[in-house]
């Protein structure tokens, strides 16, 4: 086993505002190896973006506070190192693509300028050299007329093209890990597929590791090696995609699979997950999923579930792993 490129260990994040404490991450543990694609799957509000922002050290404090846990990137303690040192890793060795490319690009600088900024900020290239490299990158992510388009601004691009620009910035310095936070959610379905294809192609070219945050089970099945399923600020199940999706070990994963159309469940009725995600300021006692779970027992209502090794490479935090496993 190689050393993981990124390890998140029992990460706890809370938002304190107006006397209320929102527990956005409650002991998130996750790791990814070099060259691997790992998906983070979960309903809206389960803490996916907050976790990614914590890794990139983009959380504003206040209101966000990291109250526990550790993040290690290539063995280095991320949260403890001076911010200036971490910023030097950012862009160079770890990069991020955000969901909404329109607001994520600066509206008053040309996209070429913003891509070239990576070279300047990291002292790799300046002036014309940096600009020429920016044009090359635009070309690599499939933007026609790159030399001309480099002078344009974000608002002059279509949604898909904007996301390509974001991707160009992310891969500019050949990072070893790319975090893509719902890179296609804001796009048309046809464009979504193109962007995913581009990401996967670029990833494979340089054997970069990629964390793909998504709602889309289809995408997970297509591109990811491993998947982590998040619920109420915890990773409740993780393991190889093929195994987890074929036979979930956590009641939530199973419910998630039953709630979306799948090729192999053709003709079956869709079962939306009943109820709504928990209020993170008032997370239910015991297993956070129990109010919505058809397997729930008194045990689930009172005690936090243990980490169960479903198979040697899989972990699920559920009191009823066996029952779920046999049900699916």
């Amino acid at each position: 086993m190689p050393d993981p490129i990124l390890e998140i260990d029992d990460l706890r994040i809370e938002f304190r505002s107006g006397g209320e404490i929102v527990h956005a991450a409650n002991g998130v543990s996750f790791q990814i190896n070099p060259g691997e694609t790992a998906a983070i799957l979960g309903e809206s509000g389960s803490g996916k973006s907050v976790t990614a922002a914590a890794v990139m050290r983009l959380l504003q404090s206040p209101p966000a506070f990291i109250t526990g846990g550790a993040v290690r990137f290539k063995g280095q303690d991320v949260l403890g190192m001076p911010i200036a040192k971490w910023r030097d890793y950012c862009g160079r060795e770890i990069a991020m693509v955000f969901q909404d490319a329109l607001t994520s690009l600066n509206p008053v600088f040309s996209v070429g300028w913003q891509i070239a900024e990576l070279f300047r900020a990291h002292g790799v290239a300046f002036g014309r050299d940096a600009n020429a490299r920016a044009v090359d990158l635009l070309n690599r992510v499939g933007i026609p007329d790159p030399a001309l388009r480099a002078k344009d601004y974000a608002h002059q691009f279509s949604g898909g093209m904007r996301q390509r620009v974001m991707i160009a910035m992310a891969i500019a310095l050949g990072p070893d890990l790319l975090i893509a936070d719902e890179p296609t959610t804001a796009l048309d379905v046809t464009v979504q597929a193109q962007i995913m294809e581009l990401l996967e192609e670029l990833r494979a070219e340089s054997n970069m590791a990629m964390i793909l945050i998504t709602h889309d089970l289809g995408v997970v099945a297509d591109v990811a090696d491993n998947v982590a399923v998040m619920y109420a600020g915890r990773v409740v199940e993780r393991g190889p995609v093929s195994e987890v999706l074929a036979r979930p070990g956590h009641a939530y994963t199973l419910a998630l699979l039953d709630s979306v159309p799948r090729a192999n469940s053709l003709g079956q009725h869709l079962k939306p997950i009943i109820g709504s995600p928990p209020d993170l300021a008032r997370i239910p006692k015991g297993c956070a999923f129990h109010p919505r779970c058809r397997f729930a027992t008194d045990l689930c209502r009172n005690e936090e579930p243990p980490s169960v090794a479903v198979t040697p490479r899989r972990i699920a935090e559920c009191h009823h792993v066996e029952a779920v496993f046999n049900d699916s």
Partner: peptide, 16 residues
């Protein structure tokens, strides 16, 4: 400063 493009800039490693 709380905008998404500032987050992008920080994620790119641009100095404060």
């Amino acid at each position: 400063l709380s905008s998404a493009y500032v987050k992008t800039a920080r994620a790119k490693g641009v100095g404060e």
